[in-house]
């Protein structure tokens, strides 16, 4: 159980690691939207190239990205197959009642590429940003909501604490499991009902200990005069630097490129129209 890593931050020194987490997060959200706009060959290709470019920039080994894809393959395959079967168009071949069309195959390739890019792009963020930076970024990005009375700081603090306690509670779970096994508990064998019943001796002590830790932590925080967000300063305030602006511009330009390529068929019409127009004069 100890090989579960929290988040998937991969320590490395790269431009993407140094970039401001807020900028990275906004870019990621932007790209996720754009991914679903890419619907023809040129735009899908550029999108793939962009993704590969950022992966290379992150200096995180490629195999880690593909490990992250793991369980997603099934989803990719499923959506691809469904798209193959249900998109009408020129018939390629028919098996039993299902007709596979050229448009269907094309569509399913696009959908698969989009899904893979989606996962890869979000992995880039989590590989290059520590959980602490992520929560700080969320707090900063959500801060406008303060105007509407949302306690953004409290939310961010809750997230930070939750993340902080994941490894602690994992360790605790392991200890409790060993202790119950020492009393002859049979964990992980037998039928479904027996297995569920075997979890009770682990869950109850775990909850008790989680509450105990929560009380202790609350007390410790109050002892150090913790109050809510008002007037608190940060140890490492986030600052937008040149590389963030530059990175943002480059990434936005590439994103704009994807959107432009999306209109390629219209270009052809435009060019053809323009050609005809000029032709009349010649």
């Amino acid at each position: 159980m100890s090989d579960i890593t929290l988040g998937q931050y991969y320590h490395q020194k790269s431009l993407l690691h140094r970039m401001d987490a807020r900028v990275k997060m906004m870019l990621m959200i932007g790209y996720i939207v754009i991914i679903f706009l890419a619907n023809n060959l040129p735009s899908v290709l550029l999108m793939g190239l962009c993704t590969l470019f950022y992966i290379a920039l992150s200096k995180v080994p490629l195999r880690l990205y593909f490990k992250g894809l793991g369980a997603i393959w099934f989803l990719v395959l499923l959506t691809a197959i469904l798209n193959c079967l249900y998109v009408p168009g020129h018939e390629l071949f028919t098996i039993w009642k299902f007709t596979v069309t050229f448009e269907g195959v094309r569509q399913s390739c696009y959908v698969a590429a989009r899904l893979i890019c989606l996962i890869l792009i979000s992995s880039i963020l989590t590989f290059t940003t520590t959980p602490t930076e992520l929560t700080a970024a969320i707090e900063s990005l959500l801060s406008p909501l303060k105007l509407f009375g949302v306690k953004v700081h409290d939310l961010a603090m809750m997230m930070t604490i939750a993340l902080r306690f994941v490894p602690t509670l994992l360790e605790e779970t392991e200890k409790i499991m060993s202790a119950q096994k020492a009393r002859g508990a049979d964990i992980g064998s037998g039928g479904a009902f027996k297995r569920i019943k075997a979890v009770v001796p682990i869950l109850i002590p775990l909850f008790v200990s989680a509450f105990r830790r929560a009380y202790d932590l609350a007390l410790a925080m109050e002892c150090r005069c913790y109050t809510d967000g008002k007037g608190r300063t940060k140890l490492n305030p986030m600052k937008i630097k040149f590389r963030d602006v530059a990175g943002f511009i480059v990434a936005s330009a590439l994103a704009a490129g994807i959107i432009l390529l999306r209109t390629v068929p219209h270009w052809r019409v435009l060019i053809a129209g323009a050609g005809e127009f000029i032709g009349r004069f010649l």
Partner: peptide, 20 residues
């Protein structure tokens, strides 16, 4: 191996945290 644990009893550190 489970049988061994009935012959060799182990009381962990702070065993009170395993009461349920």
């Amino acid at each position: 191996i489970r049988r061994v644990r009935f012959d060799v009893g182990l009381v962990f550190q702070y065993p009170e945290y395993q009461l349920f």
